[in-house]
C-alpha cells in the first residue's frame, strides 16, 4: 500500500508527463508521444500485474489446499471401485438368496403334491370301506397303504419344515445387503458434498471453502476405528482390515480370551 507522500509524488510525476504529452502533441512529435503515453500507463500496468499475480497465487494455494485435504482423490481412487465391488456383492447375495428360496420351493412342492395325491387316494378307498364295498384283501391293502402314508407324512412333513426354515434363513440377505447399500449411499452423499466444495472453489471464493463445515467423512474417519461398518465384502478394503472369516474364527478368538 503506497503512503500519502508516495501517492503525491506519483501524481506530480504523472502531471509532468501529461504536460510533456500535450507539448509533444502540439509539436507533432509522434515518436516522443508514444514513449510518453507508455510512461504514463506504466504505474497502472504494474498494479494490474501485481493484482493478477496475487490472484494466481491465491488460486494456486487454494487448489493445492483442496487437493491435499480433499477426499475426492481418495474417493475416486479407492472408494468408488470399492463401492462398485459392494454393489456387485449385493447382486451376488440377492441372487444366492433367490436361488436358495427357489430351490427350497422346488424341493417342497413335489412333497406337498405327493401328500395331496396319496391322501386323495386313501380318502377314496376309505369311502369304499365305509360303504362296505371292500373285500378283505382290499382292506388289507388299505391298511398297508395307511401305514405307508403315516410313515411318509412323518418324514416328509419334517422335510417340509426344514425347507421352510431354509426359505426363512435365506431372507437374511435383506439385512446384510441393506447395510451394504446404506454404506454406499453414505459414500454418494460424501461425493456430492465434495463436489459442492469444488464448485465453490472454482467460483474463486476461498473463504467459502475455508468456512465450510467439516465434512461428515472426516467425522466418519475419525471414529472409524470403533465404528460399525456392516458386513465384510470380498475384494474391498474390508478384507484388508483384521476381520474374522466366520463363526469358527469368532469362537477361536473368544476362547483365547477365556470364553
Amino acid at each position: 500500500m503506497a503512503t500519502t507522500t508516495q501517492r503525491e509524488e506519483e501524481r506530480q510525476a504523472q502531471l509532468e508527463l501529461a504536460r510533456l504529452l500535450v507539448e509533444q502533441l502540439q509539436r507533432g512529435d509522434d515518436e516522443a508521444v508514444e514513449i510518453t503515453i507508455h510512461r504514463l500507463s506504466a504505474p497502472f500496468e504494474r498494479e494490474l500485474f501485481a493484482e493478477l499475480g496475487k490472484l494466481t497465487r491465491d488460486l494456486h494455494e487454494a487448489l493445492k489446499g483442496f487437493r491435499e485435504d480433499s477426499r475426492l482423490l481418495e474417493i475416486t481412487r479407492d472408494e468408488i471401485p470399492d463401492a462398485k465391488e459392494r454393489l456387485n456383492y449385493v447382486i451376488t447375495m440377492t441372487e444366492q438368496a433367490t436361488h436358495r428360496t427357489l430351490n427350497a420351493v422346488d424341493a417342497g412342492l413335489p412333497i406337498a403334491e405327493q401328500i395331496h395325491a396319496m391322501a386323495a387316494e386313501l380318502a377314496a378307498n376309505w369311502v369304499r370301506f365305509r360303504r362296505r364295498e371292500m373285500s378283505v384283501d382290499q382292506f388289507r391293502q388299505l391298511a398297508n397303504d395307511l401305514d405307508a402314508f403315516f410313515a411318509m407324512t412323518d418324514t416328509e412333513t419334517d422335510r417340509l419344515r426344514s425347507l421352510m426354515s431354509q426359505i426363512m434363513m435365506a431372507q437374511d440377505f435383506q439385512d446384510l445387503t441393506g447395510q451394504i447399500i446404506s454404506r454406499v449411499i453414505r459414500l454418494v452423499q460424501d461425493v456430492e458434498e465434495n463436489l459442492v466444495g469444488l464448485v465453490r472453489l472454482s467460483s474463486a471464493r476461498m473463504e467459502a471453502v475455508k468456512s465450510a463445515a467439516p465434512r461428515p467423512s472426516e467425522v466418519d474417519e475419525a471414529v472409524a476405528a470403533i465404528e460399525s461398518r456392516g458386513p465384510t465384502v470380498p475384494n474391498t478394503k474390508d478384507v484388508q482390515a483384521n476381520v474374522v472369516t466366520g463363526q469358527d474364527d469368532v469362537d477361536d478368538l473368544l476362547s483365547s480370551l477365556g470364553f
Partner: peptide, 19 residues
Amino acid sequence: AEAKREQIIEAAEAGVNGY
C-alpha cells in the same frame, strides 16, 4: 455382521455373553 477382531474383543471386554 461386524467381523473385525478388535470389535469382537471390544464386545468381550464390555461383557458380552456370546457373539
